[in-house]
Each structure stands twice: as structure tokens, then as C-alpha cells.
Amino acid sequence: MKKLINEPADVVDEMLEGMVAAHDLRRVDGTEAVVRSDAPVEGKVGLVSGGGSGHEPTHAGYIGDGMLDGAAAGEVFTSPTADQVSELIQACDGGEGVFCVVKNYEGDVMNFETAIEMAEMEADTEVEHVVVNDDVAVEDSLYTSGRRGVCGTIFVHKIAGAMAQRGEDLAEIKRVAEKATENVGTMGMALTSCVTPEKGEPTFDLGEDEIELGIGIHGEPGTERTELMSVDEITDHLAEAVLEDLELETGTEVATIVNGMGGTPLMELYVVNRRLQSVLDDRGLETWDAWVGDYMTSLDMMGCSITVLELDDELMELLAAPAETPGLTVPE
């Protein structure tokens, strides 16, 4: 499998160099964590996130006014280490503490928990966090390690980022981030596997007439393998799973994301959005904002996910607040 890389082992480091060369960012010395170049910003809570690489623009692509102050990049699909996350937290503390957005997956949770303890011990940093678990494909039961955190996390970044930007404190940010997490659901599917730089071959084999439903964002196989369907059928399936989980009343206002997994032409994502919006319309839901694009990817995987967020006035206002980052810009 061909890739635009030098050595697989260097890809994360070199990607970060390329990001810093393009955007208003800097590396935290000696780590694979990246922060806004003026971090820590005094007088506001620092907002950080992080996780494995390969999901670009997630995570560092959401650093900027109105969203994240910093992000830690692990190896491809591997949680960043606790000591790097701890350094990141400390680099983003402008005196008002730091809030971490963590995606539910054991590696991230374990490393962030350890990092938070370390930052509290080493630098007396006040830290709060939220664990996003929006993936409705996985049952949240004794038989799983809980629902995964996937593309809905971007809504949480945006909402928590707007809170931090307007000077809210840790407790308030936590309240709203938890509300957003409760209100959001996502379900994804793959037409193809992705190829990691290390392995250089598809993570799983998928026949020419097969697709995976209920995938995560790490190139892992999904919860179910089915025959290839038309995009309308696929969209119906994903939307139904999300809506069943959210149980929204008629007239509810929502924001949606049709997210590409990295290798999907934007053209196709718009075709998905066409159907999604008509499904929502049929159910009497009101789409207040619809995002279409690559927000949370799995390298070069072809496929998509659908995210629906239930809105109230507070969440609407926060989503509409200005943001200026490489991956998402909302003008005033």
C-alpha cells in the first residue's frame, strides 16, 4: 500500500511538524503534544483533548480561539502516554485550571486519568474532564467496555470550547460538556478498511459486496457485516440506530454531522446528507445546523458516520459562537 510518508515510525512527528509549519501552533518541548502558540492563555480555563493519531483534523486541527488550547497525539490509533498528556495539561493552565475532553476507550481513559493525577501532583493544576461515549453501535453494558467516543466528540469540543472562551469556570464547563455528551449519538460504517502506516495492509478484509456497520474510528471491524446497500438504505440504517437511541420528540431541534472516514469523496457525503435530512424531516425533527465533511477520520478508510445532537437554547448559542481553527471556523 502506497502512502505519502518517509518512515512509518516518523509519521506522527513529521505530521506535527507540518501542522506547526501551517498553523498558529507550537509543540510542547520534547513531546508529541501541540498547543496554540500563545498558550497558556491567562484568565480562561484551558481546554485540551488528545488520543491516537490517524483521525485528522482531530485532534490538533481543532486548536484555536473558541475550541481547544492543546492536544496530545499518540501513535497511530494508540492513546498518547500519560506523561505527555500531563505535560500538555500543564502547558495549557493559564491559572483557571484545565478541562479535558476524553473519548471513551480504555487506553485514553487510563492514560488521561493517570495524567490528571500527575498534573495535580506535579503542578497543582485543577483538572476536570468529561468522557464522551456517543457511539450507539456498541451497547453500554457489562459485556462491553462501554460505548466508544467517536465523531460526536467534535460537538463537545465546540461547545466546551465556546464555554471556555467566554470565561466560564471548570464546573460550568463540565456541566455543559456532560449535557452535550448525553444529547449526542453517532453511528458509523465502512466500505473499506483503512491501512495503517505500520502495517501497510488493510486491517480487515472486506469483500467487494460487503460493508461493515457499527465501526469505531480505529480501523476495527464493526458490530455487523452485511451486504452492500444503496446509500439511501445505509443512511436509513445509521440514522435509525442513532434516533432510536436518542428518542427525540417531534419538533426537537438538532445539529447533524455527516462525517467522512478519510477516503470518502465529499460528493458521496453530500449524497448521504440528502437522505439524512429527509429522514429527519419525516420524523418531524428540525435541523438547525448540518455539517458535512471529514471531522473525525480513520486514515484512508472509505465510509461515513452520522451524528445527531439534540439542542436546547444554550447548546445552540455555544455551537454558533465564533471559532477559528484549522479544522473548523465559525465566523462572528
Binding site: G74, P80, G107
Partner: peptide, 12 residues
Amino acid sequence: LVSEVGGASGPL
């Protein structure tokens, strides 16, 4: 291992 591996296996 903790500072080099990350993921689930690093902390474990």
C-alpha cells in the same frame, strides 16, 4: 512502557 506505549497496553 508507560511513557512509550500509550494505548491500553501501555498503562496495563
